[in-house]
Design a protein around this nucleic acid. Structure first.
Lengths: 354, 354
DNA sequence: GATTAGCACTCTCACTTGATGAGTGCTAAC
DNA sequence: GTTAGCACTCATCAAGTGAGAGTGCTAATC
């Protein structure tokens, strides 16, 4: 049972109005503001039908109507039109991103900042990495007689390091040997694979000092690998949500903030999402049932993907925000393209349900 | 004009009660709960005097009294006694810290976690570093033909790195040469010094490729140095404050959260504080005038200092919290001591005003 | 002179009441 | 199918009320 043209118009009007004012919208104000050529009474009848079909809800008898998740879904899939960014926003994005184009992390961080500034929502960005990231090399660097740095570098240029203090001094040679040794053992393997798989014991354990050093380093190696899964995640504008009427209750604000304290959990959640612009609304999320989450992917050399996203209440300007994110990710992919390559990296605008 | 013994008793009772219940305390409840041997009326008279002297305030005519910053200051300096930690807390601290004793960053992060769990306040911890940190070496590591990692290591084992993408390919040799080159130029110099000083141009610029590479790397080098000033700062339990009656107003909660979004500012603030256990109360802080901030320092090999701290409303359990922090920092300093060294690293308990 | 009992006074808080206004749902007329 | 009209519902606000907690003052007491 499809919606009639008029029903769609009314629904769109309600969504537009509610997104703007955050208050239940009544039949009379729709009739006044949006020129639909019918009286409030007619609109009331249609609204009642829309409610029966699950597109609207009713906080209480005599409040106006509020769009449901289902309504937003319909809006995102069918109704909304792409918005053009303002010249000011475009300029801002171009300027800020080009300022640090040669540094991955910084560019990504700037992207998150931009996103939260423009949308006035909470945003995040992560450097390109996946569960399938493979190890490129492992390096142990001396600091002082007992202190050393363990560094793991992924294929994508992701780096994680930790500073270790050993109980016994090490020698420069054993350090270099172990670096090479470990690189040989783990190069090309994915993080998941190494974490779940057997630890490789049998390499070069003929030398006493080496195997001792190895024993001290291994536990930290594994823990650091785990950290590496949690890539570089930048979060920005978390406090923006305090300005929204949805979060004037301290409890909801707390819940919101607590979600983001668990960075590792959050990262895994986001990594699991599909490519392209993905919108999940309210109940479609397993946690955060009153939030909408929009993620988009950018590409490096047309292959590796990183993600950016915004989080806010289901009441948000879907059209503007998805357009901004599309522009932003295209811009990012553009600047991370190898000169000469052409691939557009499958940046299709899917908007699909998760 | 000193306070009489009885006035001190009453003030202490008011503080104890207020810290516990977060509600203005009246003369009658003091007389009932604390056995001072005088009637409410006498207590009222004393309270009135204490208010004249600035130790108490009055939200409105017929509420009870609330301790002022000045009262807390007196309490911290003179009245409070050291608390013994519960066996449970001690065990928890020992267990959790020893689990990752060989890794700096992880241990520090665990310390922050512990602190916020035990105190139910917001906490932070930073790895040892100061504005006087000196550069130990600089390393450039290849990732792919245009991508490389720039890594700066400080004397204390602090590492900062960034992934760069160049416009033109580089050669392995030029990379190694530049690494050595830069290390020679900057080794032993402090971050501040390098950031403020002249950029050194004249080293090895006879080779064309090298000077080009250098030109691409330098801007990032300086930006990354700045990052390094902002050490590793771990924040934990920010959402704890939502449970406090002081922060049920969304505005105050927002202000609080926004303070910590500015990590670099916060780091600099904390680095500037004295060694030992330092308590600054309310107005004594230039920002956060309704917060109390307690920091403490731990030592590595008896020299380098790192900081941990808690932040909360001025109404907090000063005696417990300072005791916990003392125990925790002693424990940290202990595990970061070079085997054989003895220095206790000046871990005096100063409690001084900033 | 210090301490205390007594009492009037102040202020907050929770609760009630009534008026107002926005909005719906139904019915009957167009 | 559309619309006007009207009764009904519910949230919100302001004003009013009583209870409770606490102070500040005064006069009596130790």
């Amino acid at each position: 049972m499809d919606l009639s043209e008029r029903q769609l118009q009314i629904l769109q009007a309600i969504i537009t109005d509610y997104v703007e004012n955050a208050e239940p919208v009544g039949s009379r104000s729709i009739a006044k503001k949006y020129d639909l050529g019918v009286s409030p009474a007619t609109i009331r009848n249609e609204m009642s039908d829309l409610e029966d079909m699950g597109y609207l809800t009713h906080p209480h008898t005599s409040a106006g109507r509020v769009p449901s998740d289902k309504a937003y879904r319909l809006y995102v899939n069918e109704l909304m039109k792409k918005k053009n960014l303002s010249a000011k926003d475009k300029r801002m994005i171009n300027d800020r991103l080009s300022a640090s184009r040669d540094e991955f992390d910084r560019t990504i961080r700037h992207a998150a900042e931009l996103l939260s500034e423009i949308t006035h929502l909470a945003s995040f960005a992560m450097t390109p990495a996946t569960n399938e990231e493979t190890i490129s090399f492992i390096r142990l660097l001396p600091v002082d007689e007992r202190t050393l740095i363990l560094m793991i570098v992924g294929e994508s240029g992701n780096v994680t390091n930790t500073t270790l203090r050993l109980n016994v001094p090490y020698t420069q040679e054993s350090l270099e040997l172990l670096s090479k040794n470990m690189t040989v053992s783990y190069k090309g393997r994915t993080l998941d694979d190494v974490l779940k798989g057997e630890i490789i014991h049998d390499v070069g354990s003929d030398i006493e000092a080496l195997s001792q050093l190895r024993g001290s380093v291994m536990p930290s190696f594994l823990r650091t690998l785990e950290d590496m899964l949690n890539v570089n995640l930048y979060m920005e504008g978390m406090t923006n949500i305090f300005n929204l009427p949805e979060y004037t209750s301290i409890d909801r604000a707390r819940d919101f903030m607590e979600l983001f304290a668990r960075k590792d959990w959050f990262t895994q959640k986001m990594l699991a999402r599909d490519d392209g612009v993905v919108v999940t609304i309210g109940e479609e999320n397993d946690t955060m049932k009153d939030c909408t989450l929009i993620t988009a992917t950018y590409h490096v050399d047309g292959k590796l993907v990183g993600k950016i996203g915004v989080i806010g209440p289901t009441r948000m300007k879907y059209d503007e925000i998805t357009s901004i994110m599309e522009y932003l990710t295209n811009n990012l992919s553009e600047s991370f393209r190898l000169p000469g390559s052409t691939g557009d990296g499958n940046s299709g605008d899917k908007k699909q349900k998760k």
